[in-house]
């Protein structure tokens, strides 16, 4: 079936099969390999994308369900915003597998709430699992970035 949607600001029109997951479409068809399919059951969050600005698990959505909507993957995040730099500077990345999902989930949080508390950051990232860092530096990176972004807005 034919589906039109917007991905990272670009209009995309494509033919997809009914059962194609959004995560597979993004990775395999469009080559957006920042989207990782870790568990395919909504536990790990490595496939997190923004759907109309809100974080979702792209493995738990069929591509045709995204018709007419806006999808943002890590490739579509503004790399100059500083969130990614904050991850690098605070050592919030080790193997890197969870990082795209973490970044997208964090971006979703910051779109909703510009200066989240540590508890709110942890709650917002609870759907993203990292096996390396112990989460501490990830939470610090999101908090540090939120502080600079908030400062820049004033």
């Amino acid at each position: 079936m034919k589906v039109s949607l917007e991905i990272n600001g670009q209009a995309v029109e494509t033919e997809v099969s009914a059962a194609l997951r959004l995560s597979r479409f993004l990775r395999d068809v469009l080559g957006l390999t920042g989207v990782k399919e870790g568990c395919c059951e909504g536990e790990c969050g490595a496939c997190t994308v923004l759907l109309d600005g809100k974080p979702i698990n792209s493995c738990l959505m069929l591509t045709f369900q995204a018709a007419g909507r806006e999808v943002t993957t890590v490739e579509g995040l503004d790399g100059s915003s500083g969130l990614q730099d904050a991850f690098l500077q605070l050592g919030a990345v080790q193997c890197g597998y969870c990082t795209p999902g973490m970044l997208v989930a964090a971006e979703g949080l910051l779109l909703d709430k510009s200066s989240p508390s540590e508890a709110e950051i942890r709650h917002a990232l609870a759907g993203n699992i990292c096996r390396c860092t112990g989460f501490e530096t990830i939470v610090q990176a999101v908090a540090a970035h939120a502080a600079t972004r908030e400062g820049a807005c004033r």
Binding site: A18, A19, R21, C39, C40, E41, G42, N57, C59, L60, M61, L62, F64, Q65, A67, G68
Partner: peptide, 26 residues
């Protein structure tokens, strides 16, 4: 029917192979 899909699309669960799948989410 498929709504949010968060229980239905979990890996290993069978997807309907025939018939009509109606998206309720929009």
């Amino acid at each position: 029917f498929i709504g949010g899909g968060t229980d239905m699309l979990i890996a290993g669960r069978p997807m309907p192979a025939v018939g009509l799948l109606i998206d309720l989410s929009r």
